[in-house]
Amino acid sequence: MQGINRCPPVKIFVGLLFAFALNVMVFTQIYGQEAVDSNIISYTDKLAYGVDLSTDIDEFIVSGPDTENFHLVTNNDVKLTLRLNYKFLNLSFGFSPGFLSGNDDDELKGDSSFTEYQVNMFPGRFVQNVFFRRMKGFYVENTEDFVPLWQEGTDPYLQFPDLKSIEWGGYTGFVLNEKFSLRSLLNRQEWQLTSSGSFIPALRYNFTKLANTFESGSYGKENQVDLRADLGYYYNYVVSPKVNIAPYARAGIGPKTSKYTLDGVVDKNTYFVSDYGGGLQLGYNTDQLYMGIRGSFNGYTYKDESDNTISNNLWHGLFYIGYRFETPEKLKNLF
């Protein structure tokens, strides 16, 4: 896409990694090293590798009193995520391989790309997440509402191949119940032996940059800043010593500021955003092997200055599997 410099995500995450490593040490000095509850098994001294295979429906919907609903989606339904966990370090890298079924229908839906980096950390009872996400290439899922006589499976969808979304963000949360392990659900570095749940308040923040070059040659970009206060409840139901079921639900509210520029003309606005989500996870665990499935839904909605309702809904289903290894002595000494 013209007019946008490519973001160096690896350099950004090296900087973020050092910053949050320092953050972890500060938290440790302030709160001390908390002992793991006797009903929680810790695997933080193990070097763990994991793989997620997920299928996503990520849709942007614009609806209004005087307009047709407009559904924008990307052509990369299936994603792979590689994970590395050791001590306080929890890294993941996600991408969308073009050879997988669901990502290869480029002739009708266009070419899409997806990249995501994430870091999770757990200083004491805090949870800290930071991420970078880049998507490019969208098509209109409901093309039949805009093109008469359009035939699904034969005619190409309306496409925005240069539409790009770049997002930096994260959240900071606190686990109110010290007997509940959020770490066992997010990174599988712990495992609970007794059922427990907890409310988790969090502050979510992100910066999004949207940009597109239109067929007419016009160039538009929008910078968005979101800040939301969030409250969720997570429960870990222990079916057996090796199997758990974990539902959760959350909701949040907060402001969104937007700066839209089209051919040099600037429009600034502030909106009130509602954020929501929920899901269910089924997990299996041994001291070495762990695996499971999870289904979740996350979204937000707000109204713009034209009274249009803007929504982003993400339906997410995944299968994860990983293995824990004994840590090499050189790595132990380094940490």
Score class of each variant (00 low, 15 high):
61 I>S: 05
174 F>K: 03
159 Q>R: 12
297 F>D: 00
177 N>V: 12
187 N>H: 03
139 Y>S: 05
233 Y>I: 13
7 C>P: 13
68 E>Q: 08
262 L>T: 04
218 S>W: 06
212 N>M: 10
86 Y>H: 09
281 Q>L: 13
22 L>I: 15
56 D>A: 07
132 F>E: 00
77 D>P: 10
99 F>T: 02
74 T>I: 09
141 E>H: 06
242 K>R: 05
105 D>F: 06
273 V>M: 10
168 W>Y: 15
141 E>S: 12
133 R>K: 13
333 N>Y: 05
167 E>W: 02
191 W>K: 02
230 D>W: 06
163 L>Q: 04
56 D>Q: 07
186 L>V: 15
117 Y>W: 15
132 F>V: 14
275 D>Y: 06
153 G>T: 04
302 Y>M: 07
171 Y>D: 08
60 F>V: 13
260 Y>G: 00
135 M>K: 12
33 Q>S: 11
66 D>P: 11
209 K>Q: 07
170 G>Y: 08
286 T>P: 14
118 Q>C: 09
74 T>G: 14
201 P>K: 03
311 S>F: 04
8 P>A: 07
325 F>I: 12
49 Y>D: 00
24 V>D: 14
258 S>I: 06
70 F>A: 02
335 F>Q: 04
167 E>A: 09
335 F>Y: 11
185 L>M: 11
41 I>P: 07
169 G>D: 02
137 G>K: 03
95 F>C: 01
191 W>D: 01
301 T>D: 05
95 F>I: 00
89 L>W: 01
306 S>Q: 08
172 T>I: 15
